[in-house]
Design a protein around this nucleic acid. Structure first.
Lengths: 224, 224
DNA sequence: GGCGCTTTGTCAGGAGGTTGTCATTTTGCG
DNA sequence: CGCAAAATGACAACCTCCTGACAAAGCGCC
């Protein structure tokens, strides 16, 4: 499902945003300051970001610039308290994709977030990736191995996608659980099972995995 | 063959743009002022427009606005002499799809033009389409199956159209709700029903759908 | 190397969520 | 009012994913 990272320090606004997005089927990740927002963004890249400009610890502008630097494709909608045109210009310069001025209508915010998501979704061409004899198409959610279609479940696909996006890096189980949208962790066996399935479906010899390596005591690492 | 309408009054830049696009297989239509640009645009709609901001006769802004008014889907890339951000904001508000500031790198301009073309191409469907024994005419809103006319309701047709336009891609129910013009209310059961109808009307065996596939936990995918 | 503890691999149910389908109600429109 | 289309609700069928148990493997310590 789609994750929205909401960065907003006012608790009342936080709550109302949560109430706005969750019933619409979005998963909401609430952060109150810029530092923790960046952490959350790095841990699990969300589908879109809703960013308040006035923030403690790290200004919204810095957060915006930093997120765009690391992931230019990730859409950001800024909540701006002022209607000052200079601000808007600045934001677009920083790379924000859209902005809504406070006080904002919930419907409008929702519409704008959806718009930026769709914009990036459709313009984000069917990016695919091939390695070994395996090719992965993220838009179609299709995977083939030696030209044979392999069916992956939604969760398996999420994990594979995260692996591919973070190829080479060691990834903890906790991180993978977050990818699946958990905060209160289910048993650690869960991840193992998913990795098992991925190995069975994608590795030549699932007993001797080449791509989905286990890093004992830490987690997993996807290579190539 | 893809046509690029280039609106640029500087003859030297004209020449270099021509030399940039023609070797890439584009047909180039050069215009030096806004008035003649609009004439050209109305005579033969190009695939994309490259528009200089500073123009005689009619300002680039007006041309941009006018073209977008008549054909919102036509992508426009603006050449802006100034790096003034106020201009950029204005352009995006006028409906420009992208902008490049002078002096620009030819490679970058080419890339951006290609990007906007691809963006619109993927969402622009042909007027008619045939698959299996089914043919769909979007202009006439007619569908036939094995030469028998099939009647679809307005909503069913909208969904079918979106499916066809995004063939192969996995589509969430939320996205489909947006297609029907909703921001929120209807339950996701509604989508299921519409898909059910489409399957009953178009699939050979609606119990084993070939074209309207369900992607468990995610949404649907239309193939072929 | 051998022992024991911890971590991971693997499997088989079962709970819980998701979807297909139908009947029914509500909406929209002339 | 009457009709058609759309939305809702209910239920069953299905699929996933989680859990828990056990086996296997890795690591540290002697």
């Amino acid at each position: 499902m789609e994750r929205i990272l909401i960065v907003e320090d006012d608790l009342a606004v936080q709550r109302s945003l949560k109430r706005l997005f969750e019933p619409e089927g979005y998963e909401v990740d609430l952060r109150a300051d810029g530092k923790s927002a960046l952490e959350a963004f790095r841990a699990v890249p969300p589908t879109a970001v809703v960013l308040d400009l006035r923030l403690p610890a790290l200004s919204g502008k810095d957060v915006c610039r930093e997120i765009k630097r690391e992931n230019p494709a990730l859409p950001i909608v800024v909540l701006s308290a002022t209607t000052d045109v200079a601000d808007k210009v600045l934001l677009l310069e920083l790379g924000a994709d859209d902005y809504v001025t406070k006080p904002f209508s919930p419907k409008e915010l929702l519409a704008r977030v959806r718009a930026v998501i769709r914009r990036t979704h459709t313009s984000h061409a069917p990016d695919a990736l091939t390695f070994d004899a395996i090719s992965v198409d993220f838009g179609k959610m299709e995977v083939t191995r030696e030209d044979c279609p392999v069916t992956l479940t939604a969760q398996e696909f999420k994990i594979l996608k995260f692996f591919v996006q973070n190829a080479g890096r060691v990834i903890s189980r906790d991180e993978l659980l977050q990818v699946l949208g958990y905060q209160n962790y289910p048993s650690t066996r869960t991840i193992d099972n998913h990795v098992l399935k991925l190995r069975q479906k994608l590795e030549k010899n699932s007993a001797n995995p080449v791509h989905f390596r286990t890093v004992h005591g830490v987690g997993y690492k996807f290579v190539l």
